[in-house]
Design a protein around this nucleic acid. Structure first.
Lengths: 109, 109
DNA sequence: TTAACATATGAATATATTATCATATGTTTA
DNA sequence: TAAACATATGATAATATATTCATATGTTAA
């Protein structure tokens, strides 16, 4: 890990945080804490995809995927738009990538 | 969010990742996805603490705390040392802070 | 406007997780 | 060494969660 990265980390250190915020945080991480959801997120890293494409990428049935997409959408981690019959999902913002990247750094040590 | 932060984020973008790694990631985030555990981690941000002190900080019973400490320790997010009768716990490394900081950034938007 | 396609959703089941209780283990001090 | 203190742990019960099945909703094309 680079020195620059460390500097960044400490810049963002949350010194003060309310109990409510901690619960919100736990809720957020809970979303990432499921392999189906994280696989969906990762599938969307490369490019936006519709539900059928996500099902194919993960080799899982459509209902299971739709249920998880709803959770991801409610958490504002992904966004959706309609394109004809299909719903196209994409990552909502770069924080998703960042959070996963941080996690990846940790497990790679 | 600063431009520098964004640069950092994209530096760390995991372009390639195995199914196994994705599951490991989910397991890691699952640890953060519980309010008791994240409150413990946050309590250890300021300073290392023994079990009794953590119980007092969180106003929770000792058994519940010990069970969660075990999970955090198994996940290598905290480490422990004995000090007399007490076990003193502390954060294992800065990744914990980083990951929580990233999550905090997300929910604050 | 009906059929085919794409996605969403409610209910049910299976599984996982958390906190509690009771108690065991480990450490110090009287 | 026995008692007191500190922590860990197994079993249980309560709760939460994920997937599946059946079906509803929404969209396009025949």
């Amino acid at each position: 890990m680079s020195a620059a990265t460390h500097t960044h980390d400490l810049d963002q250190l949350p010194d003060q945080i309310s109990e409510d915020e901690l619960c919100e945080l736990a809720e957020l991480f809970k979303i990432f804490g499921d392999s189906t959801r994280i696989r969906i997120l990762f599938a969307l890293f490369r490019s936006e995809k519709n539900v059928t494409e996500i099902c194919e990428a993960l080799e899982m049935n459509q209902s299971a995927i739709s249920h998880q997409l709803k959770i991801l959408r409610t958490s504002k981690l992904i966004s959706a738009r309609r394109e004809g019959k299909a719903m196209v999902y994409s990552l909502a913002d770069d924080h998703v990538k960042t959070i996963i990247a941080m996690g990846k750094e940790h497990i790679e040590e």
